[in-house]
Design a protein around this nucleic acid. Structure first.
Lengths: 143, 143
DNA sequence: GGTCATGTAACATTGTCTGTTACAATGCAT
DNA sequence: ATGCATTGTAACAGACAATGTTACATGACC
């Protein structure tokens, strides 16, 4: 499968921000990038998606940075998923199948049903976990 | 997300083979490719994966081709998934996160748990549908 | 005004998926 | 045994997406 890490990065960012709220420093893309171990622009792109969905807010100017727009308990992984992830788990044919064949004609709508039911299951599963849950699990891992 | 079509192609192939069993012709990669509308080698690669998992069998020599190793009612989409799909729906960080940060240290094992639970949900969902179900739905789409 | 970080564009790099060509291996038919 | 159609696989080209990087205009506080 894709091995797309946007979901992972976004959860990492939000979890980091949840933990960092206790400090008095400002959450900048640069500092977050230090934890994720990537370029700050990658983090800004991610935060931009999260802001469009209303999960974070940005401040500009001097002392600028990012803050959570909601409590970690109120942010589910489903919202993160909807914010940063594109299509579903499986893709359709690259080029349209042969419509003169019964299977080629009917396979796409048939799979559409199967795939969207599956997508619904994924969403339900993601809705059960919040960023606060992840933070708790993350801290439980410490040495 | 990935937009990986291997799953779609594999289901298409197996569904086509289920329908084609009624004819007296031999199922060759060339004929299947005609329905999927792609190159025969792509189909052979897919069939190779399906064979490794025991879902189809191949015959060589003259009059060679492919046959289902099991009844369409006994092949679930989960088995197809396990045969052709690689990793799970989400990937981890491209480069390892900063282990000196508590979040960077604990995020991977924490997400591993979340992701594998999700993967389990997907598998359960896929196990509910068989190739015979798909064939029925495909034929119901006809003009 | 100086400064710092956001916001975004542009581009390079990398990796994966798909498609294509080529060809050896296989085994039935004649 | 020879021919033939197809599998099985390697090798490569092309397309595309994700990621990383550089650069710079924009905004707002000091």
């Amino acid at each position: 499968m894709s091995a797309n890490s946007r979901m992972t990065i976004a959860i990492h960012v939000l979890t980091w921000m949840s933990l960092d709220r206790q400090n008095n420093e400002v959450a900048t893309s640069e500092r977050i990038a230090g934890s994720v171990n990537t370029n700050a622009v990658v983090i800004r792109r991610c935060l931009g998606d999260l802001r469009k969905s209303g999960l974070v807010q940005s401040k500009r100017g001097a002392g600028a940075g990012w803050v959570l727009a909601r409590e970690p308990e109120d942010i589910t992984l489903l919202e993160v998923y909807l914010a940063v992830e594109g299509g579903g788990p499986f893709g359709m044919h690259h080029t349209p199948p042969n419509a003169d064949c019964p299977v080629g004609f009917g396979i796409r709508p048939a799979l559409q049903v199967v795939y969207s039911e599956l997508e619904e299951e994924i969403r339900k599963g993601l809705a059960r976990t919040t960023i606060a849950d992840v933070l708790r699990d993350v801290l439980a891992q410490q040495r």
